[in-house]
Simulated assay, not measured.
Amino acid sequence: MKYGFGVDIGGTTIKIGLFSKDGELIEKWEIPTNKTDNGKHILTEIADFIDRTIESKGIDKNDVFGVGLGVPGPVNKNGEVNGCVNLGWNTFNVEKEFNEISGFNVKVGNDANVAALGEMWQGAGKGYQDVLMVTLGTGVGGGCVLDGKIISGMHGAGGEIGHMPVRDDEPTACNCGNHGCLEQYVSATGIVTQAKKVLDHDNRPSSLRDYDCLEAKHIYDEAKNGDEVANEIVDLTCKILAKSLAQVCCVMDPEIIVIGGGVSKAGDILTSRISTFFKEYAFHACENIPVVLAKLENDAGMYGCVKSLF
């Protein structure tokens, strides 16, 4: 039997999965991300963990077909990472360095891109080859898969949907330094920001005013309960997202759009409204592209890392 490891490197924890070549997740673990010394120990600690794991399980190193790594930053086709602020990394070739440390066949990709590949392989996009995925969390990530392959682009910025410019009059800067990025309106943080603006300038009663610390979940929950203001905020953010998705679809024309991340736990209210607005904005040939919820949750990145190896 041949084995692969999928490693999703986050700013707080590193998720590591042991997989069979046919896509079965055999076992998974989490280890803390050691960001001391600008993250220079991260790759060594991953390699050490994998070595200990295969030894404890009696797996021959020659039976490991590779290790896929997902990282929170842009990655070009050669495995070079163009900086990962959350890890303390500058620009360097992660693929080459991890290969030298571990001796394994290695493939490196952006974390959102490999999540899209994972959903295509064993998740909501299974059975499709052209998948657009958007992850709505603290920020907004995206992944484009065409003909079963990640589209990372020349600079590793392929799929950075969260930083599409959607408004010119936004006074607040995005984390990327630009103004008016999609992420500022449809991420969990962005939704709350928009809600507070509405509540500050609208005197209508709303159950949203009852929360001391308003979260995206509260907004979707109250919208489901029929709160008028909450529903308007959900409509506002879903409309902005749907318009951006329609623009992306004019370029890549996917078979399916997959919505993941923490905000996706809102469920059908999210996908149904995105679909409704998407039909209004989409080019007629794309207007019936289905919008569905992701299935693999936090494991999608590990699946995609393994899939990227072959």
Rank of each mutant, 00 (worst) to 15 (best):
G137S: 13
N231W: 09
S308I: 06
G73M: 12
M1H: 08
V131F: 09
D221H: 10
E297V: 13
I256E: 01
L245G: 04
G58M: 09
N110K: 00
T135S: 15
R209C: 05
G304Y: 07
K57R: 15
Y303E: 04
T91V: 13
D111L: 00
G103A: 01
K107T: 11
F310V: 01
I191D: 12
V192W: 02
I54G: 00
S244D: 09
K40Q: 15
A230P: 04
G68D: 01
E24Q: 14
L309I: 04
L236E: 09
A285C: 05
G156Y: 12
G11E: 15
G125E: 03
P74T: 11
I233R: 01
Y281D: 01
G156D: 08
K224D: 15
M164T: 12
I59C: 02
K196G: 08
I151L: 15
G141L: 09
K96G: 00
I50A: 03
L117S: 10
Q129R: 09
S275M: 08
T172G: 02
I54V: 13
G68L: 07
I16K: 14
G88H: 06
M302I: 08
G139V: 02
T237W: 01
N110E: 14
A246Y: 04
A246C: 03
V94D: 04
G68P: 02
C286R: 05
F277R: 11
E45R: 10
L25D: 02
D63I: 07
T91K: 14
F283N: 04
I101F: 06
G156E: 12
M164N: 02
Y3H: 09
M154D: 00
V258Q: 12
D227N: 05
G73T: 13
F92D: 05
E160T: 02
C238S: 13
Y185P: 05
L43H: 02
I151R: 08
Y281C: 05
A116Q: 06
A112S: 11
T138P: 14
G301E: 07
A246W: 09
R209I: 06
E24D: 10
V292L: 03
C238T: 15
